[in-house]
Amino acid sequence: MARRATPEVNAGSMADIAFLLLIFFLVTTTIEKDKGIARQLPPDEEIEDPPIIKQKNLFIVSVNKDDQLLVEDELMKVGDLREAAIQFLDNGGAPNGSPEYCNYCKGARDPKSSDNPEKAVISVQNDRLTSYSMYIAVQNELVAAYNFLRNRESQRLFGWKFTEVKQAIDEGSFNGNEDDAQEKLERIQKLFPLKLSEAEPKKSGQ
């Protein structure tokens, strides 16, 4: 007797169905890659007696409504802001032997500029009509100045770059002792704490 095979289910249309689904997902896909500049806002409470900051420890950046940049009473281009901020933060003007002396600063040690990175505060003053792209450019340059100095210190102390290791930890691709690296990152952050203050923006024309 001839063996009779059970008829197979016709799977010819499976490919079509799968293609249809595939095309749907292809069209609706947006692979999002949101990145940006992270910030911590100051809490909204009255500070009883605000610490007095010496004029020399303050680096004032103001932007007017026409996106012009005024840094320490000097007109400046955005491209030069990073260098100026690095010089200010890295200055280490406190005299050798005083408790505020900064032994890792490599700046000019000008007594008229900041004492040490811990004391140095950068204050950004915007106009309400400043464009957002200018605002971000200024913030970006200031963060870049901090990152440059942090990278320099982590390179000197541990032999790797601060930003690279931080990114690797954020992405979960860091291989090695993560807690140890985290601790080292915090040490570097203490050497150059991010002290950016934002003043209440002026109304235009004032």
């Binding site: 100051p42 809490p43 605002y135 970006n140």
Partner: peptide
Amino acid sequence: VDEETNTGLVTDIKQQLRDLNMLKIIYIT
């Protein structure tokens, strides 16, 4: 935020966030 927006609008939003105590922000760029 669109790059042509005024900073004033962003400041207003930030003030609201401080009132709400949502202090962690990120400017997407």
